[in-house]
């Protein structure tokens, strides 16, 4: 009856609880030392260039000046200006329209192409590389390339239309054409990414599910709609949130193609911030807008994390 018998002498504790606690905390402190070396560099830069700017933006959004002159506390003035600014309203409207159009098109096309690629195992790699290619091109240069496609006089598309005897289209100089052209640019650049994204998702659909579908005699299309797509749904919801966050930051192609025009027709939220900050020196409004964008992104992220639980079934 080993455990019930009294503790033998050799098994008596010799360290007092105090001594033990002291030694323990000394030991733990010692083990903590290398943490500073490992975590320090990132934490320092993170604090300096992410946490501080976020806090600062919040504070500055209640101030006037701050960029060149001293800051002056103005309460919610920036926020009221922000809410009453027509240009900003246009920017928000433009960005929203752009986001909806670009995401709808790129998701639809991306899914279709991914499904086609998934059934086309032979030359899959070639198509993957080809579709991915535009992603290499920085958006600003993609914008330049689009200039040669969509320019009223020398753009290839208009040249083609002319040779076919059709009227030319003013892609960049009219509304809402300009915004749609920019959406087209982003779709062109981003399509490959979403194809690969969906392809990775489709290929992670358990093969036994697919085989079960084959044995049940489900046709390709039906199999895709009834089996693959529902399994992908959590992944798609998550992708949607990522895409929303990325696309709300529309700036580069505006800078390349239209500079916000014609008559604010392509002014996006980030373009607005940039203009307020560096052209009009209206920093308070810019900070308020930055903060609003930040809040929007945080809201979308929280939304995304809401789906994180579901995401696992779709992927692994």
């Amino acid at each position: 009856m080993t455990t019930t018998s009294a503790t033998p002498e050799w098994a008596q504790l010799t360290m007092s609880p105090d001594e033990c606690a002291r030694e323990r905390s000394r030991f733990r402190r010692h083990a903590l030392k290398p943490i500073i070396g490992f975590l320090g560099p990132f934490l320092f830069l993170w604090t300096l260039f992410l946490a501080v700017p976020m806090g600062w933006a919040t504070w500055l959004s209640f101030n006037e000046g701050g960029l060149v002159s001293d800051a002056k506390f103005v309460g919610f003035k920036n926020w009221t200006t922000f809410l009453n600014n027509d240009e900003l309203r246009t920017a928000i409207k433009n960005t929203s329209v752009y986001v909806v159009v670009a995401i709808t098109v790129v998701f639809g096309l991306g899914l279709i192409l991914a499904a086609l690629l998934n059934n086309n195992k032979k030359s899959q790699n070639f198509f993957k590389v080809a579709l991915y290619f535009p992603l290499l091109i920085p958006p600003i240069m993609a914008g330049m390339i689009f200039f040669f496609l969509t320019h009223y006089d020398m753009g290839v598309i208009n040249l083609l239309l002319q040779t076919a005897g059709q009227d030319r289209v003013n892609f960049l100089g009219a509304n809402p054409n300009a915004l749609m052209t920019i959406a087209g640019l982003e779709v062109w650049r981003g399509l490959g990414f979403w194809v690969l994204f969906y392809l990775a998702g489709l290929q992670s659909v358990p093969t036994d599910l697919i085989d079960a579908g084959k044995i049940d005699g489900a046709r390709n299309t039906r199999r895709f709609l009834r089996i693959s797509l529902p399994t992908l749904r959590p992944l798609m919801l998550f992708a949607l949130v990522i895409a929303l966050i990325f696309n709300f930051q529309l700036f580069d192609s505006v800078q390349a193609l239209t500079k916000g025009g014609p008559t604010l027709g392509t002014t996006s939220i980030v373009w607005f911030i940039y203009k307020q900050l560096f052209t009009f020196q209206q920093s308070g409004v810019a900070y308020a807008t930055s903060l609003a964008l930040l809040l929007l992104v945080v809201a979308l992220t929280i939304f995304a994390y809401g789906f994180l639980g579901h995401r696992k079934d779709g992927l692994k």
């Binding site: 504790l13 010799t14 360290m15 033990c20 030694e23 323990r24 000394r26 030991f27």
Partner: peptide
Amino acid sequence: EEATSGEILINGKIVNF
């Protein structure tokens, strides 16, 4: 792992920490 309580001795020396 670090013990929650109790002592470990190797060669007569307490080695918990």
